[in-house]
Write a protein that binds this DNA or RNA. Structure first.
Lengths: 337, 337
DNA sequence: TTGTATGCGTTATCAG
DNA sequence: CTGATAACGCATACAA
């Protein structure tokens, strides 16, 4: 493997001059420049990136923490992030936490050991006190997830309002005994969503059936299980708010195998507007998030924090959502209220 | 940021000794060891990974090249790869090529510039002659994709046979005018599949309608377009072989919006056994691939090639598939043959 | 416009 | 068992 030294020798010049043309800096004659370029070609020279990293204290790499890539929401997020990062000349390391506190901390170590210049967290498992110290090693930006108390930049949408609108829609469709089915860990996001859910119920003076809350449903299989749990234990259920299109799809699939009609007997809403929500029969009422915009903004914010180290000005961007009403919830409103 | 030097000073010892305890090498008194550990803690010392890389010529990082993360097949692949790599102490860089030759080459440069120790390619866009030179910079392993002529390790399944079985199944269901709808670029994989498709037709003396070949369909939207192209131009079509569950889902979705019945009028098969194929109505007949096993084997092969640099023995692993017959193709066999 | 010298933080070699 | 010293490959102050 040729080094800068080899190139310099072959061109009959010094390492410095070679370095100058590599980083195209000024002050180098066109003639010598060509001589060096020629030599580089001849030797198949490529700058060694480990050496550059050590010397320049930059890695041009960022880590993106997420639960798992195959969760379509996070998949979409990292897809867009990688594209934007690539445009800015950055590499992206995938860090799947699988909702493990330990793995989350392990991956944050990448920041500490200078393997990455910055970190994006799309979910937060540990208490914030565990995370905060890592901010001294480099910038962290929260995307999707948020923490009110923390001094970091955040990019997300208003999950409380989204859940509120979705729930209100179920109520308007005549639902009165609504189950709340959401995903794993207790994140700020799910906290906010449940807040919106209960606000809507309260506003319409509808009872919040705490027995009808399921907090372990994240994917299609969970949705299938949730359907049985709910219909067996609470046959009076007439509406289900879910935290993801996958869970909603699982419910709808199992309903299809049973005598329950959707939306007739039970109206269902999903979240995220995945392709799946459009393809299911019935199609799923859901909340669309501007995933790509949020992902790109996140990378841009992180990028600018990496570049302007000094100016540590945490910023916050809140994006709009849209309620997409589809067939899984659309039914004749009972003449009730 | 504390360095090894700081730790040495604080402990009143030399860098060498500190280095020894970091890499727990023998020959260091328990007492001094403790003294050093104490000092490291006190300073919050963490070894600088850039320096280690430069010194050891290892990055403990691999690059995984794929078209896009949100294609569920590749998403599943990289999910499993990241997990296995993580177990082996390796980081994974996501490299989305978007089927661009240039991006593929750009990402391969990571190997050349020593930013990664090895590369996994799950698709190959460029001619093999373009790729081959990179083998001199480090190991490359092909997963899913394969190249008969090349001297690299490969992990994949028999796409020819899978397509053959799938097509044969359509024929057994009474299909006689079968369309072939597959994805973008001309890969070896798609070549093999088409081979299996034509073999099945030939064996049953059924005409291969080359007009009924679509080669640009990769996702749900494409499937939707393909449905219209096909049914408008060839209303006699009675079977469709597709290269992915997404495309099949798009077709089924559009059929649902029209007067066409699936599988009654047209039988459809997908590929990959995504969750989607089970959830669609009708559920999609498809080919299941042992994605996780292939992904893990790929990482293990790459790992061993990284570790045992010298022994460059390209290996090849072929995995089994399964035809899963579901409703999208199941129909009363016409009393025909 | 070009070159010299130095250091980024580690680890390996070799001498003590 | 321990430590001084030399790389690893590059970029940058400083000198010329």
């Amino acid at each position: 493997m040729a080094t800068i030294e080899d190139v310099a020798k072959l061109a009959g010049l010094s390492r410095t001059t070679v370095s100058r043309v590599i980083n195209d800096q000024p002050y180098v004659t066109e003639e010598k420049k060509q001589r060096i370029i020629q030599a580089m070609k001849q030797l198949g020279y490529v700058p060694n990136s480990s050496a550059r990293r050590l010397r320049s204290q930059k890695t041009e790499t960022i880590a993106v923490l997420l639960p798992r890539v195959t969760n379509p929401f996070y998949g979409n997020l990292i897809e867009a992030m990688e594209e934007r990062a690539s445009e800015l000349g950055y590499q992206v390391i995938v860090c799947q936490t699988h909702d493990s506190k330990q793995k989350e901390l392990d991956y944050l170590q990448l920041l500490h050991t200078k393997q990455v210049d910055g970190v994006v967290m799309t979910s937060v498992i540990n208490e914030w006190e565990e995370i905060e110290p890592f901010l001294q090693s480099g910038p962290i930006v929260l995307c999707n997830e948020y923490r009110a108390e923390s001094q970091v930049s955040m990019v997300h949408m208003d999950h409380r309002l989204a859940a509120y609108e979705s729930t209100m829609h179920l109520i308007e469709q005549g639902c009165r005994r609504i189950a709340y089915v959401s995903g794993g860990r207790e994140s700020h996001v799910s906290f906010e969503r449940k807040l919106g859910f209960t606000e809507a119920l309260q506003e319409k003076a509808i009872t919040f059936h705490t027995e009808m809350v399921i907090d372990w449903a994240e994917n299609v299989q969970d949705g299938q299980r949730a359907f049985y749990d709910l219909t067996e234990n609470f046959p009076e259920v007439d509406g289900i708010f879910t935290g993801s299109d996958e869970v909603a799809a699982g419910i709808i699939y199992e309903a299809g195998q049973s005598a329950w009609k959707i939306p007739g007997d039970i109206a269902v809403t999903g979240f995220d507007n995945q392709m799946l929500s459009l393809l299911m029969v019935p199609s799923i009422t859901t909340i669309s998030q501007p995933v790509r915009e949020m992902a790109e903004k996140t990378i841009e914010v992180l990028y600018s924090q990496i570049v302007h180290k000094k100016v540590y000005q945490p910023s916050r961007y809140v994006y709009d959502h849209h309620l997409l009403v589809r067939n899984s919830s659309k039914r004749k409103t009972l003449s009730f209220q």
